[in-house]
Structures are given as structure tokens and as C-alpha cells.
Design a protein around this nucleic acid. Structure first.
Length: 122
RNA sequence: CCAGGGGGCCGGGCAGCCGCGUCCCUCUACAAGCUCGGCAAGAGCUGGUUGAGGGCCGAGGAAAGUCCGGGCUCCACGAAACAAGGGUGGCGGGUAACGCCCGCCCGGUGAAGGGCCAGGGGAAACCCGAACUCCGAAGCCGAGGGAAAGUGCCACAGAGAGUAUACCGCCGAUGGCCCCUAAAGGGCACAGGCAAGGGUGAAAGGGUGCGGCAAGAGCGCACCGGGGUUCUGGUAACAGCGCCCGCAUGGCAAACCCCACCCGGAGCAAGACCGCAUAGGGGUCUCGCGCUGAAAGGCAGGAGCGUUUCGCUCCGAGAGACCCGGGUUGGUCGCUUGAGCUACGGAGCAAUCCGUAGCCUAGAUGAAUGGCUGCCACCGCCGAUACGGUCCACUUGUGGGAUACCGUCGGAGGUACAGAACCCGGCUUACAGGCCCCCUGGCACU
């Protein structure tokens, strides 16, 4: 089974209404998507850094998700990782374990309630 | 060796595991089209899609800032002139072009050093030589056209700031007054003369010296500066020699302005096509509805093209304003062969250009070009060490001592700035660190 990538802005806005699980390097958003399979997306805002920083963070997150989702991902859910300050400097393997725990918490229905949708950027 | 400078190049490497993007190839599956077939079975070909495997290539010197200049695309465009606005500004060259680059000119700055010189040493020859000042290379800096075309401004301070001025001061020859008088002389600072010195200032209407004078002053002279000009050299900017002028017109043009030259506008969200959507949309208000014709259309008229002339376009029975609704956040093309890169040869001081041969070197779009691990490399820091060198001593191959230096060993760290988004030529800014080359002056040696 292939894992699709989210590309539409509307999908990200919907995911923002799902469960939030924050970790030092990232925030994991999960939300059921009515049987469209496992999908993922990555959000790194300009607040985090310049283009080099943002691209590097996206590559690391993509690597984390590629490793984690097939086994640990939630079926028929959208997964969105939001970049935070420590996303680059934090040890990769440590973040990998943190992602596992975040996914487990999401599968059990734990996590914060959704925040209010942010104002559209750009 | 000392001193002062300039430029170019690179900007981590290797290995393992896993992964991404374009393109190509093989196989598999699916349906389609075409051809061949007895129009049967079937075979072959073409492009597409799904999946698997393999191969090639895959960020920068600034990809950045978006400050200039182009290509390309669309819009406007009949032409020229003029106006407006913007830009550039020593001269020559290079270039597709530039506000860029190269060479040169001018002004300023510029180390060691040199000239002049007070003075010192010396019997002399000669030597040393302060301050001021002058000459000093490469390099660096210069919005570097015009201030005798015009207008304007020059704050504060100051007496006076561009028709110069007279506060302190100097003088008071001449005239006046006073003293003493035979005469000479002396005094006062009244008339008046002066602008040297002081003071103010960013700037005081050439500077230094000598003469001159009552005191002064280009008043006269010498040198320096400045202006004009003949000639010579140079493509030119300009430079040099000579002659003349006693000096007559300070700064600001990044204040207006004048002169010369250049310039249509918008940008790949350009633009083209496909799909979707709208169904040639709806509502309200205002103004208008001339002639001809069956109609299409034509004419009058109106509007626009910066202006003018001729000319062109549109409307011509509808037009305008406002509100509501729809589309532009799908796809394909544009999209990478280009002022291209490399090598060799040639022209040129150089920027750069010419010739020949070879090469094809990212095309993503929630945006590929990577993630993790190990080893190495480089850098400074901390610590250890007398094993090698530097250092000291002498018995000249031994001893001593310190960790300041180069090595050696160990440790904890760091490895920058930064990510193509249509493409080029520049500029500017950011940058851990490494490598290389060159210029100029001086000293020493050969």
C-alpha cells in the first residue's frame, strides 16, 4: 500500500481540527479521513527559519514518517507534522522514539483538543 | 629580510544501509488505435497507464538582495517632430547592453626613504642632522560635465559672507590743535589714512620673502599658485616649453537650472492550449434613442489614440455608474542548446575578440538533488611529554631546564554563508576555513 502526500491546502486545514500531540521537535496532528488510506503532510512555517532550515527540517520529517508510518501509522488517517524550533538540532533517533510514542497516544485517542484555525498565511 | 598593497581559486572526502526527481531501457498487466491475416484464430507496430527491475545525471559562489542592463512573451504602435518624466556624466576602448569591465588622464590620500635646513662635529675635505615644508611607489578614494547663461543659498559666530568690511589694532606723512622754539624737534589722536597683526568662522577676496611706506597694500620685485595664449606631443581627456596678465569672476549644481547622450509599458502569476464554470449573466439608477435602408449596413454625431497635422480604431441605439453572481488556488506547453562549457592556437598592455575540435551539464511545483551511522581530513582551544628541533652550558656529545614555539600524544568541541523556480551579463551584501599568484619601495647578498 502506498502512502499519499497531502498537497491541498484544504486537507491541512481539516487536519488542524484533529488531535494534537506535541513533542520537543514537532507537533503531530492526526485526523480520520473517511477511508482514503494513510496520508501524511508536513508544515514548516517561516517562523522557524529561512529556506535552508525549512527544507532540511522537511527532509528529516519525511524520513521519520517514511520509517514510522507503514508499521505504526493510523489506518485511514491524515498525519501532519508541524515543525518546531528543535526539529533540526535534536537527535534523530530520539525524535524517532518520540514519534512512536506520539502515534501510540494518538491511536488511544489521547491528545489536546484542536486549536482555533490559524489565520491564512501567504 | 623589512614595509605597504592587490588579485584569483576551492569551499569537505571515503564507505555502508535506506530514500527522492527528470529522462532512457527491459519485463509484466490493462484497455485503445493502426497494419497484416481465410477478416477467423492470431501476429506485429504505435503511443498511454499500473507494477517490478536496471542505467545516466542531479544546487551555488554567492542559487541571496532584487539595485542596474539585456534576451523572451504579451500589450500599445502610421510617421516624424515637440513636450513631459526618468537616468547617465573626465577621455578612449570592450560589450547584445549597462550605472559593468579594461587602459589612461586629473585631483586627493599614501610607508620606508630623499631634498631643503636651525644646529652640532671636524684643521680641512666632509659627516650627522630636529621642527616646519617640499618630493615620495604600488595601492586606495573621487555623483570627476558646466559656477565669466541666469536665479537662489552660505546657518551660528563675526565689524564685515560677494556691490566686501573696520571691532580691537597700526599710522597720523598731509591738514588741525598744543608744547618748545632761531631752526630742528616733541606731544595729542581731531580730520583723515591702512588692512599688516589680533579676534570670529567651514570659508575673510592669492601665499612666502625682500623692497617700499607715516602705517600699509601686487604698490614694485623674486619664487610658488592662478588666468590667457602660441607652439610641440597625444585619437582624446590632458601634459610640457615659451610668452603675456599683478590677479579681474570664493563655495554649493546630492538647490533650481543649463549642456550632451540614452530610455514605450508590463512581466513566466508573461503568454498559449485543454478541462471545469458562466450561457453570452442578473438587478437598480441616470442620460439618450437624428437621417437613410426590408435587412445587413452607410451617413450625421460622439468617444479614444499625451499634443499637432493628416490618419487610424471603437460606438453608432444604446451608453455610463453602483451592487450581486461566476472564473482566475486543476492539467499540458512555455522549460532549458545557451551572448553555453572545455581544450588548443592566434590578435591585443588589458577588458575582450577570432578560429578549430570536442561536449550536452538540474528542470522541481506542499517544490527532487537527501537521511542516518562509521572512519578520515581541516581548524582553533585545553592538557601531557624532554622522544626530535629551537634555548643554555661546556668536557663536542653529553648534561640542564622550561612547555613560550614547531613537532609528538591524548581530550572535549567546531566545519561557515546559504537552497535553483524563465534564462543570461553585472553590481552589492553574507561567509568556518584552506590553497595559489602578483605588484611597489627600501636594505643585504650573489
Amino acid at each position: 500500500m502506498t502512502i499519499e502526500v497531502l498537497t491541498k491546502r484544504a486537507d491541512f486545514l481539516l487536519a488542524n481540527k484533529g488531535l494534537r500531540n506535541a513533542r520537543p521537535g514537532f507537533v503531530l496532528l492526526t485526523r480520520p479521513n473517511q477511508g482514503k488510506g494513510k496520508r501524511f503532510g508536513i508544515t514548516v512555517t517561516k517562523k522557524v527559519g529561512n529556506a535552508v532550515v525549512r527544507n532540511r527540517m522537511k527532509r528529516r520529517f519525511r524520513e521519520l514518517l517514511r520509517d514510522a508510518l507503514p508499521a505504526e501509522g493510523l489506518a485511514d488517517h491524515d498525519h501532519v507534522l508541524v515543525g518546531r524550533a528543535g526539529g533540526i538540532t535534536r537527535d534523530y533517533h530520539r525524535m524517532r522514539k518520540e514519534l512512536t510514542h506520539a502515534l501510540e497516544a494518538a491511536a488511544e485517542g489521547k491528545g489536546e483538543r484542536p486549536r482555533k484555525p490559524m489565520k491564512p498565511r501567504q
